[in-house]
Write a protein that binds this DNA or RNA. Sequence first.
DNA 1: CTGAAAGCGCTTACAG
DNA 2: CTGAAAGCGCTTACAG
Lengths: 350, 350
Amino acid sequence: MANIRQVAREAGVSIATVSAVMNNTKAVSPELTKRVLQAIEKLDYRPNLLAKALLGKNSGLIAFLVPSMTNPFYPDLLEAVEHAASERNYGVFICTTHRQVDRVDYYRERLLGMNIDGAMVTLSSEIVKSQLVQDFLSHGIKVVGITGGRVMPEIDCYVLDDETSTQTVCSYLSGLGHREVVYLGPDPAKSTTSSLRYKGIQNAIKGLLPTVKMELATSFCTYSEGSAYQAAISLLASGRSFSAIICYNDQVAVGVVNALKDQGLDVPDDVSVIGFDDTVASYTRPALTTMAVDRKGLAEAASTRLFTLIESSNGIEPTVVKIPMSLVVRGSTAAGPYRSRPVRPAEMPG
Amino acid sequence: MANIRQVAREAGVSIATVSAVMNNTKAVSPELTKRVLQAIEKLDYRPNLLAKALLGKNSGLIAFLVPSMTNPFYPDLLEAVEHAASERNYGVFICTTHRQVDRVDYYRERLLGMNIDGAMVTLSSEIVKSQLVQDFLSHGIKVVGITGGRVMPEIDCYVLDDETSTQTVCSYLSGLGHREVVYLGPDPAKSTTSSLRYKGIQNAIKGLLPTVKMELATSFCTYSEGSAYQAAISLLASGRSFSAIICYNDQVAVGVVNALKDQGLDVPDDVSVIGFDDTVASYTRPALTTMAVDRKGLAEAASTRLFTLIESSNGIEPTVVKIPMSLVVRGSTAAGPYRSRPVRPAEMPG
DNA sequence: CTGAAAGCGCTTACAG
DNA sequence: CTGAAAGCGCTTACAG
């Protein structure tokens, strides 16, 4: 691999001149410019980005911290972040935490030693709990939070509007005539997003009072479709009465729908099922009614913010941006037992 | 951020001594070791990995090149590669090509300037076609290929055994009494994996002759479940007769199953459907019969090889490792029209 | 417009 | 066992 010195020798100039034409950072005579360009071409020279990064300034590196790649939500986010980064000539390190604090610590150490300019972090509990964000900030590394639950006041956070979206779900379901619903998802004590959605449902149900009185039960699973399947089977075995299940996300909803079907129940005639995120919602039949969010747009907005922070460097006040979700009605929801029948036109006079 | 010089001053030693205790690369007296350790602790010192990387040797960086994150196959691979890398203290750059050659070129330039030690590349056509692999090799960057079709003789390749797996599929289907099958997937002219699977099916069918005569038709889609859905609808509209559909992968199979159901056909009673990869196979009802592969094991094997190459550096002969796939029978396949009935025990004397 | 020199944060012979 | 010095490949004042 040729270096700047070899190019300088080949072109018969100083390395400062080579540097100047590479970055056109100051005027160079046409004659020398030409010779340098030819030498670069001839030697197939490429500046060493690590050496550049060592000089202080920007390293052109960011990190993306995420719990795992198992939930389809994250790969989509990653793809959009990486795309935004490559457009601005930044490279992205991928760091999965597997929801373990010691993996966050591992990456904290490693990334701190690597002069990264910024980090996009999902706001999952192992990251929020660790000192990673604070340490990054105190070392001048810009941080933006994206999805995952709890909000951190120190940084810009791009999160889903779970409060509004759960309200939408509950009023939709109550309008359909459902009065006994269950929330099926990861234990709210262990997952911030699950907790946000569960509490959102609780509050939304309170908000419906005294007009509509809705009963809420819970059933816990982990993050996989298979675990949701098992939880739904147990729920059925418990004998509890319900007409609708609100699921943590679409993967969970898929497991639930399959469990209900396998137990001989019809979705949505016997039970309505609703998901979140709109990831694998169209994989099942009936396709899932779900709360959708523009993941790409979310990631792009967060990325734009991160690069603005990196490149401006004057303290912008951190803000929380709540991304709205929208109800997408498909086949997995239908009228429940308490649906008030619409007045038939025939009953109207004339 | 403290540097080695500040630590040396704090401990009252030379920077060479600090370096020696950090890497315990040569003996240091207990007394100095202790002072250095205290200074490191006090200043919260972390060695700059970029500076280290600049010294030649290993940079501790690898790249993972992949078409996209949309196919669930790739996130699983990424997760395993990243895990293997972090165990050995390597960082991984994620590079998605979106099947575009100019994105491969972009990353070729960028990674060449970044002293990466190695690269894991999916053998998708845009990567195989570009000069990336050859350029990396000539710059001393180790490369291992993983899944995706065509094999490159210059590098170790860990690929799926599509030849054997398609044979398995065809003899399974012929044993079930299917004689008219269609292959539904991306145009083989555009996707190497699709071409491998299509040709494998063609060959397997030839291999069954003259005992069994199977007809093979094709229907093309892209990589998404939605596109497969449309292709299946068109196939149905064409009026062609068939009793089984072999799908490019599980996502495609999901689209096909849903299209068949939405058109009032029963899976598997009217049409058997089979997928590949075992990604989202259990999301549908009936669950998909599919050819499964241990993605994690595949990625681990390829990663181990890559790090062996990086750390040994003496020329190991490139080999092709074909990972076997195994048939997982679920509900989407059943006996076809030509199933020969087994002899009933009642017909046997005594 | 051009180049010699210092310096980014490290490691590694080399001398003592 | 310890440290002064050279050097990895660049950029950036500074002089001319």
